[in-house]
Structures are given as structure tokens and as C-alpha cells.
Write a protein that binds this DNA or RNA. Structure first.
Length: 725
RNA sequence: GCACCCUUAGCUCAGACAGGUUAGAGCGUUCGAUUCACAUUCGAAAGGUCGGAAGUUCGAAUCUUCCAGGGUGCACCA
């Protein structure tokens, strides 16, 4: 009688993801194969193999896993597992981010709710102690959730944006950039958030549409418009376009006496092209201390700049009788006074305009002139390769030359557009949680030049923009500024995979930092994935109640189904619509694969070490698998993971299960023993290849089946070799 | 205002950069099968003037131009 295998005891039906996942996770963790050093030590990777590295975009240390993270983890783990199976020296570095502003404001809010204390009441040390306790406590949540996805990260290299090693990198980066003249301190107009009491960078501003009354005031012979009467106290310049024929009688520099809010003033006419002839009357007064564009006009003509509003939104002495009043309360009073003085021409109700807000959960931005630290993006300095250029130019060059490729390609245009509009980057923040400005520290203050000779450098209490340290992430995680083996081996990284929404915040800043500090790009490829939306294409949000929680999906349908749902149908850079039905569908697929394996193993003979004579018909089937392998590999190489996964899915289900196996049934039970043996061998071989091809996408179920194979070339599928076709 | 993307079956999307049989898939719908590795299954059917118009071409879902609708980024907002 023919020797028949039988499905092992553990091969129960249906496939039980949660049981398999905990078992398989343990196998992987114990193997240590996520660490490339272990792979080399155990002989599964050659010491001279080509390196392949990805640095995980660090999730917020106090956050929980959402579908965006899940998509990121799925995509990166696919690339990593594929590289590892291809024999590359593969490293995926995990980390978490402090998310300075968001974290501090959350902890402050909590403390205020419970204890009615502000951060000033607690003091800097106590607040930081509380924040650190909070981050430490919540850290394990996110880390465990990342592990649940099957992410083969090397946890021995875990990094946190505020740990000791990253602190050294940040200090070193700051000092080097300062010494090169790329970091300077200056009094500039910045985005001030009166609610969080800190500056924020241009990129963190979110414009929100708002309806307000638009006031037309009589300013001498002119009609000037504003939505913000409370800024008008200091206005002693009236600006118009030089080509505006309506005002040709007025000459640049001409003085006019006129009646204004708090009495008679002398106004000076300024001709400047920044005035838009088509807007309102074409005439405006300016408030240089509280408006970016006004500040520029004032700088061009060397005009006086007088602050009107303080950091808390309270009017200064220039406001006369209104001094000491908050702008919110003052506005109607000022309008009323202008009205009684007969200075209101008209009021347009319902004027729609954009208001700048702090996207990090802050308030409405009030531009202020403040002494802050900046990174000069247009200044030409010497780069490590000897060329003299600016950060802006270099950031453009490395993408234009293809040293770093952005996928999908149309984001390159968006990236250039952003660079063209980029202004000096304000990097100091007035919050306490974060890396402090090195000027404060002993040991560094020596290197930092004294701004004005003869004065001592005061201690700067500010911290650095979180994106300053994030910009160093690809190399600070690999040991920089030390010249470590990791740094030499794994930098530049192979690919940076992240959502397109942080292209500017982060991707561009990493290119900036790495270009100057490392003299090389931080990554060879940028792969931008889309946002995960609900089944109808809406953003997932609490208020809509349409949030699909990845952990719930993992518990209900398994991590494999969750992963592949986030990959299939997700072309690079396009938003992905995800529904629970879709995840359920791929759970069915995991079960299908499981049952294919049951069938094959119950009927199969081994494929290794047996000289078999294979029928021509079966050879054709094997050739078909070779074609599939080639196409899947090509698509992964092109970052078309969606197509790679989709074609494998269809091959396994429609071709392998529905056709090949069905056609095999009569052959296996037939009288032609040689044909049956040939087919058994073929089925086993197709299963074997299918498992390898699917492993990056569905690591748990494929590994669980792999563990049931009697003959295999590797104890774990995780480090089995990728089929070579 | 400037820029980028999208518009293909009821729904969600491939296909477009490299033009070439009868434009595909999943879900849904309808009909049927099933002592089978799998009812988390199998087979079949219905369903599309590829947003509109013009152009290039032997040939256009695909390339070009214009238009319409939707989305996004950036700037402005006195």
C-alpha cells in the first residue's frame, strides 16, 4: 500500500489565528532572527551579504495602535521579510517618539483637571517627572501592540527620541550646525500659540476657515479694512501699490495728519508691491509686530516696529485706555469707540477667511516677534563633500538626481513645491518636555559663540522642535555621532516608508539633516502610503464612530487577515478604504490556505532529497509557479505590494485550490502510481512555494503550516530562502 | 490664486507612465451544486457609451488640449 501522510494532530480546522499567533510569536522571538547579527551567527545570513535596513517611523510613545500604524507595520514588515528571505543582512529598527507638544499638553491638562495646578505651580523638574512617569507607563502598550502585528523588528536596537543616545546625537547636531553657521538666533516674526505658550513651525500651522465681520475704517482719506481692529493701535504707515493710479497723488514717504483710535497721529505713505490692488480699497495699514507680511514690508522700508499684544493676548501700553485688556474683550470696545468717533465706513458681516491654528491641539496663532533659534535654509555653507551650497538646494538636488526616489513619483513635484516656499525653520519651543537647546549646557556653551562680545550666554530654557531630533532618526538610531558598525553597515537606509501626510514634517527634514551631517541621503527610497479610510472613503474618526481598531480586527480575524487587508487594494500613495468585510474576507483566505495544506499534507510525499520523475504535465504546473514567483518578486521590487499580494492570492485560491487540486483528486486516487507520485510531489512543491511567497504578507498562517512540514530546508519559514525565479 | 491627484460595473478599485484580441477583480445581486481539504465551499449569470468634448493615430480607458465634478497641498487673507 502507498505510504500516505496524515495531517498532524495540531492541524485542526478551522484555522485558529489567535492560538497560532501566540505560539508562532514565541518561536520567532526565541529564534532572535529579527536581529541580523543572530542571523549571521546562526549561519542563515552570510556575513558579507548586502545590507537592507528600514527605520520604523516611531509612533507616539503615549499613543495606541491605529490603522495607519497597522498599514505602516504591514508594509514595512513585508519588505523586511522579503529582504531577509532573499538572504540580505536585514535590519528593522524600532522606536517610539516623545511627541513633545502633544504629550506635554495632555499631561498638563490631566494634572489641571485632577489637581487644579498649572505647570508653573509644579515647576519644571516636577512636571518632567510626571511626564516621564506617564510615558514610561504607557510605553509598553504601544510596543506590545506593534508586536501583535507580527512585526519582525529588532527590539535589541530599540530607540526612544529622548533617550541618552539620541540626546548625544541632538547635541552634536546642534553644535555642528551652529558652528557651520546654519543655526542662528534672531528676533524674527514667529508663529506664537498663546494657548500652549510656545512657538510652532510653519508646517505645524493648519488654516481653518472662519466667518467674521470685516470692518472698513476711515483712516484719513483712505478706507482700510480689517477683521482685527485690536491690532490697529500701532498703525502709522499706510501702504499702497506703486502702480495704483487711484492713489497716484500720494507719494512714498509723504506724511499725513489724521484722527485715529486714541487721537491724532501722523501717518506715512509707503508704496510697496505687497499691497494687492484688487483687494478692498487697495490700501492697508500695517502691524509689523503681529503679521508676517507686514513685518516683511516694515523690514524692506526700515520702518518702526511696535508690539501691540503680549504673549498672553493682552494689549500693551500702546493701546492707551485698552491696555491690559485681553484682545477678545477689547475688540467690541474698540469698534464701539471707532463708531462713536465716526471712523467706521461700513461693516461687512460674514467675511470668510482662513485663521491660522496650531495643528498640534493648540490655539489660534498670534504672530509675534520673538528671539528664537532658526535653521537657515538659504545660507550657503560647506557640506561634507566639500561643495558650498544651501540646505534648500541640496534637498532639491538629492531628489532630482535620484539619490533618493520618492514613490509615487508625483510627490516629488509636491516636495519641490514645498522646498520653493520654505523659509528659515524655527526650531526652539517654549515647552519643557524635549531636548533642551544646547546653549544652556556646560560643555557645549563653550563651543557656542557669544552673540555679542562681552556678554555671557544666558541659560536658554527652551527645548528643540521635536522634528529637529526626528530629522536625525535614520542615523541617530544607528549610533551616530559614534562611527559604529551599524552606522557604517546600515546607513543610508534602504527605504523610508510613511504616510504622505508627514512628507514635509519629517521626510524632508531627514533629508536636510542627513545631507549636512552625514554627507549622504538618509534613505534611497521613500515609499508613501495613503491614509486608511473607512469603507465609504471617509476619514476614520471618533465622532463618525467609524473607527476600525486594528487590535479588534486581530482578535476577530487574525493578524494575517488584518495585514493583507491593508496591502491589497492599496496602490502607493492612494488612500485605502478598509471595511470589516474586507478583513473577514482575508480571514477566509487564511483558512483556505490552511485547508490546502491539510489536503496536500494528507496526500503528499516529500520534495527534498528524492529523485523523482515528474510528468510533463506537472512540469508545466511547476513552470507556472515559476512565472508567478518572478512576477511577485518584480512587483515587490517595484513596491507594488498590492499587486504582488493580489496575484498570489488569486493563484493560491483560484488556480491552486479550485483548479489544480480539484484536477488532482482523480489522479491521486487513480491506478497510475507513477502519475500519482509525480502529482503528489508537484502539489507539495506548489504548497512549499506558495508558503514562501505568502510569508511576507501573512507570516503567521504560513509559518504555522511550515511547522507541520516534515521536510524543509529551514527550521523557520521566516529565514527560509525566497524562491529563485 | 498656484500646484498636485482622482473620475472605469450598484459599491470599492486594478488596468494608464511603456496605445494593440471580446476592459478585469473583490464585495453585493440572481440562479444552481455540494457524502469532497475547506459551508470561511464550488460553478454560473446579470451588470460598463472607461466624467464630457475635440485632437494625434491604422487603432485611444491608455497620449495631447480644453471643459465639468470631486479631493489634497501651498500661498494669500490688510
Amino acid at each position: 500500500m502507498e505510504k500516505r501522510g496524515s495531517a498532524p494532530e495540531i492541524f485542526l480546522k478551522p484555522f485558529n489565528p489567535s492560538e497560532a499567533e501566540s505560539h508562532i510569536s514565541t518561536l520567532w522571538e526565541n529564534s532572535g532572527y529579527a536581529n541580523p547579527d543572530v542571523c549571521i551567527e546562526k549561519g542563515v545570513t552570510k556575513p558579507d551579504a548586502e545590507p537592507y535596513s528600514i527605520v520604523l517611523p516611531p509612533p507616539n510613545v503615549t499613543g495606541t495602535l491605529h490603522m495607519g500604524h497597522a498599514a505602516m507595520l504591514a508594509i514595512e514588515d513585508i519588505l523586511i521579510r522579503y529582504a531577509r528571505m532573499n538572504g540580505q543582512k536585514t535590519l528593522w529598527v524600532p522606536g517610539t517618539d516623545s511627541a513633545a507638544i502633544a504629550t506635554q499638553s495632555k499631561v498638563e491638562t490631566d494634572i489641571y483637571k485632577k489637581e487644579k495646578k498649572t505647570r508653573q505651580d509644579l515647576g519644571r523638574d516636577e512636571l518632567l517627572k510626571r511626564i516621564n512617569a506617564f510615558t514610561e507607563e504607557s510605553k509598553s502598550t504601544i510596543v506590545n501592540q506593534i508586536k501583535r502585528m507580527g512585526s519582525s523588528l529588532d527590539w535589541s536596537r530599540y530607540a526612544y527620541t529622548l533617550d541618552e543616545a539620541r540626546y548625544k546625537a541632538v547635541m552634536e547636531a546642534f553644535v555642528r550646525m551652529y558652528d557651520a553657521g546654519l543655526i542662528y538666533r534672531g528676533d524674527r516674526i514667529v508663529n506664537w500659540d498663546p494657548k500652549l505658550q510656545t512657538t510652532v513651525s510653519d508646517d505645524e500651522i493648519e488654516y481653518v476657515e472662519q466667518k467674521d465681520p470685516f470692518y472698513h475704517f476711515k483712516y484719513g482719506p483712505f478706507d482700510i479694512g480689517t477683521v482685527r481692529p485690536e491690532t490697529k493701535f500701532g498703525d502709522k504707515y499706510v501702504v499702497m501699490h506703486p502702480n495704483d493710479t487711484r492713489y497716484k497723488e500720494y507719494k512714498h514717504g509723504q506724511k499725513l495728519q489724521l484722527e485715529w483710535i486714541n487721537g491724532p497721529i501722523e501717518a506715512t505713505v509707503i508704496k510697496d508691491e505687497a499691497a494687492d490692488m484688487a483687494f478692498g480699497s487697495g490700501v492697508m495699514t500695517i502691524t509689523p509686530a503681529h503679521s508676517g507680511i507686514d513685518f516683511e514690508i516694515a523690514s524692506r522700508h526700515k520702518l518702526d516696529i511696535a508690539p501691540v499684544i503680549d504673549e498672553r493676548g493682552i494689549l500693551l501700553s500702546i493701546a492707551g485706555e485698552f491696555a491690559g485688556t485681553h484682545i477678545k474683550k477689547a475688540r467690541p470696545l474698540i469698534v464701539e469707540k471707532l463708531r462713536t468717533k465716526g471712523l467706521i465706513a461700513k461693516i461687512d458681516e460674514g467675511y470668510v477667511h482662513n485663521v491660522a491654528t496650531n495643528s498640534r491641539g493648540g490655539g489660534i496663532i498670534e504672530p509675534q516677534i520673538k528671539r528664537q533659534w532658526f535653521v537657515a535654509v538659504d545660507k550657503e555653507v560647506k557640506f561634507p563633500d566639500g561643495t558650498v551650497t544651501s540646505l534648500k538646494k541640496r534637498m532639491r538636488e538629492v531628489v532630482e538626481s535620484g539619490e533618493t526616489k520618492i514613490l509615487p513619483a508625483h510627490f516629488e513635484k509636491i516636495y519641490y513645491h514645498w522646498i520653493d516656499n520654505l523659509r528659515d525653520w524655527c526650531i526652539s519651543r517654549q515647552i519643557w518636555f524635549g531636548h533642551r537647546i544646547p546653549a544652556w549646557f556646560k560643555g557645549y556653551e563653550i563651543k557656542v559663540q557669544i552673540e555679542s562680545p562681552g556678554t555671557t550666554w544666558e541659560q536658554d530654557p527652551d527645548t528643540l522642535d521635536t522634528w529637529f531630533s526626528s530629522g536625525l532618526w535614520t542615523f541617530s538610531t544607528l549610533g551616530w555621532p559614534e562611527q559604529t558598525e551599524d552606522l557604517k553597515t546600515y546607513h543610508p537606509t534602504a527605504v523610508l516608508e510613511t504616510g504622505y501626510d508627514i512628507l514635509f514634517f519629517w521626510v524632508a527634514r531627514m533629508i536636510l539633516m542627513s545631507s549636512f551631517l552625514m554627507g549622504e541621503v538618509p534613505f534611497k527610497n521613500v515609499y508613501l502610503h495613503g491614509l486608511v479610510r473607512d469603507g465609504q472613503g471617509r476619514k476614520m474618526s471618533k465622532s463618525l464612530g467609524n473607527i476600525i481598531d486594528p487590535l479588534t480586527m486581530i482578535e476577530k480575524y487574525g493578524a494575517d487577515a488584518t495585514r493583507i487587508s491593508l496591502v491589497i487594494g492599496a496602490a502607493p500613495g492612494t488612500d485605502l478604504k478598509l471595511s470589516e468585510d474586507k478583513v473577514r474576507g482575508y480571514k477566509h483566505f487564511a483558512n483556505k490556505l490552511w485547508n490546502i495544506a491539510r489536503f496536500v499534507l494528507e496526500n503528499s510525499s516529500e520534495i527534498y532529497g528524492h529523485a523523482m520523475s515528474i510528468n510533463p504535465e506537472d512540469k508545466k504546473l511547476l513552470a507556472e509557479v515559476d512565472v508567478l514567483t518572478k512576477q511577485v518578486s518584480d512587483n515587490i521590487n517595484k513596491f507594488r505590494l498590492d499587486l504582488a499580494a493580489d496575484m498570489t492570492y488569486h493563484f493560491v485560491w483560484d488556480r491552486f485550490a479550485s483548479e489544480i487540486i480539484e484536477q488532482s483528486k482523480p489522479i491521486l486516487s487513480g491506478t497510475d502510481k507513477a502519475a500519482a507520485d509525480s502529482r503528489r510531489h508537484t502539489l507539495y512543491s506548489i504548497l512549499d512555494t506558495s508558503l514562501r511567497l505568502l510569508h511576507p504578507f501573512m507570516p503567521f498562517v504560513t509559518e504555522a503550516i511550515w511547522q507541520q512540514l516534515s521536510e524543509k530546508d529551514s527550521d523557520l519559514l521566516m529565514v527560509a530562502h525566497w524562491p529563485n525565479k
